[in-house]
Design a binder for these strands. Structure first.
Lengths: 284, 284
DNA sequence: TAAATCGTGTAGTAAATTTACAGTTACATC
DNA sequence: GATGTAACTGTAAATTTACTACACGATTTA
């Protein structure tokens, strides 16, 4: 990106232009919010020198340079560019947590196995009945999944209570499908329910770290191997990964059911939206 | 992102400001390279109207608006906004949905206002009682918030049922805090409850798109201006943004309560983890 | 029907960016 | 070693750009 381009061209710049370059590299975030006068001052050069610097890099002038820099920063991952302003807790917090979450998803994009997704979609698209089981935090993921699938026109149920899902699991038959969600993959009661489900002939899609007891019971395993941080103040960004996988499954299933089905759902959605405007929002 | 924020606020704009909005939406790419005069001309309004338009959207002026727009466009990578088609392989699906989610979070990182977060944290750290209200999809976010705050050692409650939260809201007093979560910002029953809460003297932190009825009722508004796509098969990645904001608040609150408190919680967490290994996982 | 509020454009002002020019330095040539 | 040339850099003026103050007109309210 732009900052890298500045770095590589550092040698071919004149003395004063290099001052500008270093000032920009030092505080890229500030640079985009400053005007040319402020940058000139902090680089201890004159304004025209800054303009010449921009031109040397191939831009029309200060405005275009600033714009391109801003765009580059929007995409850049943190840590590299800006040292966090230590005194500003909130800004630092926002930056760190967002960045960590982004990294989690980047990681997911690289490691999520499309083949497993495809197998899972095959199972789901043929299933008579789809149930989501998850406890604690994963119970929320399961509830989210139910919501998403429902909005995609696929009725499902989600259970977070061990007693309930063990009963539900015992009622499953061949042709039914369960999605078991667990961040640890070792919840005994969930494992028990999944065993019951399999005994009844149901297919089980597991979202859990690989190598866990739950993972071993899967018909299809979608492994989610992220660091589970012990520090309680670390945001549990792993949850985001689970939610995105659920997104993938919901969208994939909807697509697999074909465009007609899709059209029908769009209409339903539209009707719902008009309703919302007058009454209560279902969407929230 | 910004363009979506413009779309959602289209109704609350005046006639001339809407002209500006439409001109921007029509040619966002041109807008960033143009100056205010050119935009005013193509929207057939005067320059001050453009400035007022920028201010209405919450920006300092034309410069800031243009910069943010440029950053938003940089994130709108080509191909990402295309709807996934049925021909897509699972790999494509994974890639697209992950990328879209990543962009949502990049956007959030660029636009989330640390000042608003700080104000929210100030309120939360002083609050006697913290409640989360959200309906439908946002009800899940509220439940998630309750979970996270609980794990940070802060007892809270979350309500998704309109009747329940209206009763709860009526019982609030000065010194209490509500976090209202809404992806639309116009749910009548939620608005009603929030009005009750404010009447009782409670502070209200709102997570919703800016310019919405709910946003106007906030003591502190944390605006989340992301796409609300009508197509039901588009992943609702906005939810990720909400979850991350909740993360930020939960972690921030824990940090603000000091290191001793933090230590205590770490121990509690550790104990819980050991317990989990033998019995049922609380974490999921 | 009058008053008031909101929205909009005109014209003037302030600010920022760019251009023109001139002084300085570094290097090459005689 | 002196002189000329070319490249850099800053000062100051010019121009563009964004913003403010004010006034007119429309729409709403009393």
């Amino acid at each position: 990106m732009l900052l890298d381009s500045i770095r590589t061209q550092l040698d071919s710049l004149s003395k004063s232009e290099r001052k500008v370059a270093l000032a920009v590299l030092d505080h890229p975030g500030q640079t985009v919010s400053q005007n040319i006068t402020a940058l000139a001052k902090s680089a201890q050069v004159s304004e025209p020198t800054v303009v010449r610097f921009c031109r040397t890099l191939g831009y029309d002038g200060w405005h275009e340079f600033k714009l391109k820099l801003a765009q580059g920063l929007a995409l850049a991952l943190p840590g590299l560019n800006e040292q966090p302003t230590q005194d500003d807790l909130a800004a630092d917090l926002v930056n760190k947590i967002c960045s960590r979450s982004i990294n989690t998803l980047l990681d997911l994009r690289n490691n999520l196995d499309p083949e497993a997704i495809q197998k899972a979609l095959d199972i789901l698209s043929k299933a008579n009945k789809i149930e989501f089981y998850g406890q604690g935090t994963s119970g929320i993921v399961a509830a989210d999944a139910q919501h998403k699938f429902f909005r995609s026109g696929v009725p499902t149920v989600a259970y977070a209570d061990p007693h309930i899902h063990s009963i539900a699991a015992a009622l499953l038959r061949a042709g039914d499908a369960v999605v078991a969600i667990s961040q640890r993959g070792n919840s005994p009661s969930l494992v028990r329910s999944i065993k019951l489900a399999r005994r009844g002939g149901a297919d089980v899609i597991v979202l859990a770290p690989s190598g866990t007891p739950l993972a071993d019971l899967a018909t299809v395993l979608i492994p989610i191997d992220l660091i589970f941080n012990i520090d309680p103040y670390t945001p549990i960004s792993a949850r985001l990964a689970y939610l995105v996988v659920i997104d993938v499954l919901a969208v994939g299933l909807a697509l697999q059911r074909g465009p007609e089905f899709r059209k029908k759902m769009q209409n339903a959605q539209k009707a719902l939206q008009e309703f919302d405007l007058q009454f209560d929002s279902f969407i929230g």
